[in-house]
Computed example of a mutant assay.
Amino acid sequence: MIKMILKLLVEVLGKKLIKAGLEEELLRNQKYITAAKMIWNVVEENFRITETIEEKILSKADAFDQKLLAKFPELTQNDVTELRQAVAGEINEGKEVVLNQVDALKQLQDNNTKLAAENESLKDQLSKVQALVAAN
């Protein structure tokens, strides 16, 4: 009976150690993600104005990788890449909505311009018809 109780106790303690290890890993990852977000914001601020989009993206990725590796040298390049993708995905999540709104606004402005030109054309035709009717 004591042997069975000891087995169960060892099993429970083993599971608690595994759980504690997982919690520590999650907290450590959260620390990495928080630091990665702060570094992303710093890099974003440094690269507001660049010549081309390609240069901007490559430079940002390189700068982000260098800064994150400097802060956490224990990370591998694969870890840094995963963190960069996670942070970029989270930060860029709301940007698609804004871009869609910008596209919709641009379309409305184009339609407004076309309608204004059509309105002017119709007014011109109306004035010609009125002048013709007045002459008769």
Rank of each mutant, 00 (worst) to 15 (best):
Q77A: 13
Q77V: 07
I5S: 09
S59H: 06
V10D: 09
E44F: 11
L17Q: 10
V87H: 03
D124N: 12
G89R: 00
L9V: 11
L115Y: 08
I53Y: 02
I91N: 02
K37S: 07
K31W: 03
N92G: 15
P73C: 03
V133I: 09
G89K: 00
D110T: 13
F47H: 13
N78I: 13
S59R: 13
K95G: 09
E44Q: 11
L8I: 13
A104P: 06
N41I: 05
V12P: 03
N100Q: 12
I53F: 07
T34F: 03
L13C: 00
K7T: 09
V80H: 00
A117H: 10
N119S: 07
Q101P: 07
K123S: 00
A63F: 04
L115E: 05
G94W: 05
E82D: 15
R84L: 14
L22S: 07
E120Q: 01
L27K: 14
K128I: 02
D110R: 14
D62E: 13
D124E: 11
E120D: 10
V102T: 07
L6V: 08
E11V: 10
I91V: 15
I33C: 00
Q77W: 09
A61T: 14
E11P: 06
N136Q: 14
L58D: 12
D124G: 03
K3Q: 09
R28G: 01
A20D: 12
T34P: 05
